[in-house]
Amino acid sequence: MTCRVLVTAGASGVGRAMAEAFDAAGYDVWITDIDRAALDGVPDHWTAHHADVSDEGDMHAVFAAISDAGGLDSLCANAGIAGPTSAIEDIDLKDWRGCVAVNLDGAFLAAKYAAPMMKSAGAGSIILTSSTAGQYGYPFRAPYAAAKWAVIGLMKTLAMELGPHGVRANAICPGAVEGPRMEGVLAREAATKGMSRDEVYQGYASGTSMGRFVEAQDIANMAVFLASGAARLVSGQVIAVDGHTVNPDPKL
């Protein structure tokens, strides 16, 4: 029987890499994304929904469709945004709430609707995308770091609550990931810190023992492993895929 996975924010970036990796592993792939143009570019055999992960109505509709299709084996609650890059005193409450809504509320809503299906099946894997910012914090990224720390707390709770029902929960903490989203972060941090883009880039890279950024495929490979039978007793874990962060902000 084919397994079914849902990847939120699955039309581009890390989410797209996850969806492609699960597809290659033989899963029936479902994705959500808020970017209609990106959704237009996904393979025809994926089931794609335009949805805002922080909108409960949107998420209820997605999971109702999944339930009608036979349920869910794996969830990758991956949607996230960088949020503002500013000193704490310069962050507007609206921007704080917007960042937390996508990064934390989105993970909560996905888990809320996935849990009953998985409990009923007596099995399942919930994978939340956190960040190394959720392990160490990060200056000038308060909303993002706070939300990603909270994602880890959510995951730990899910692992305890759902484990007796055969459902596992884990969090992946990507480091700096090559791609357009990180380029935006680099540009904003360069402006905030009075540095060049390349200086900020090297600061991130030199803060890891392996001296480099990771790629979306590295995150996707971990997600497929965590969903697989090879990880059948891996639950409640925070797994960094980051080249081993040794100094989260060496340039400050």
Rank of each mutant, 00 (worst) to 15 (best):
V7S: 05
I91Y: 02
M210D: 02
G15C: 07
A176C: 07
G236M: 03
G166P: 05
D92I: 07
T2R: 15
S131F: 02
S228E: 10
L154Y: 03
A240V: 05
N78W: 03
A114H: 07
A69H: 01
M118H: 05
D198Q: 15
V177G: 05
S131L: 03
N103I: 04
M18T: 08
D40N: 12
A65K: 05
Y138K: 03
M117K: 02
A65P: 11
A21E: 04
N78D: 01
H45N: 15
C173I: 04
W30N: 03
A230N: 13
E178P: 04
A48R: 00
A87D: 14
S196Q: 04
R4H: 00
G179K: 00
A150S: 13
Y113H: 14
T157S: 15
A79Y: 06
M118R: 04
L154G: 10
T8K: 09
G98W: 02
A191L: 11
Y136A: 08
S86Y: 05
P248C: 12
D44M: 08
A142V: 12
A25Q: 09
R36I: 07
L75G: 11
D40L: 11
C173H: 15
K112L: 11
T8H: 04
D35V: 00
G137A: 10
E56I: 13
G15A: 03
E183A: 13
F213N: 13
A223H: 06
A220K: 00
T2A: 13
K94G: 14
A123W: 04
T132P: 01
A87W: 06
R168P: 01
V5A: 09
I172C: 02
R212K: 14
C99G: 01
N78G: 05
E178Q: 11
G243S: 10
A11R: 08
A17S: 14
V151E: 10
C99N: 12
M160Q: 15
S67Q: 13
K148W: 06
C3V: 03
W149S: 10
D35E: 13
V177N: 00
S86K: 15
I126G: 06
V102C: 12
L154W: 01
A231R: 14
L252V: 11
E89P: 00
A51M: 09
L6S: 10
K148H: 06
R36K: 13
F108K: 07
D95C: 09
D33S: 09
K156W: 06
G179L: 03
A79L: 13
I152P: 08
W96Q: 02
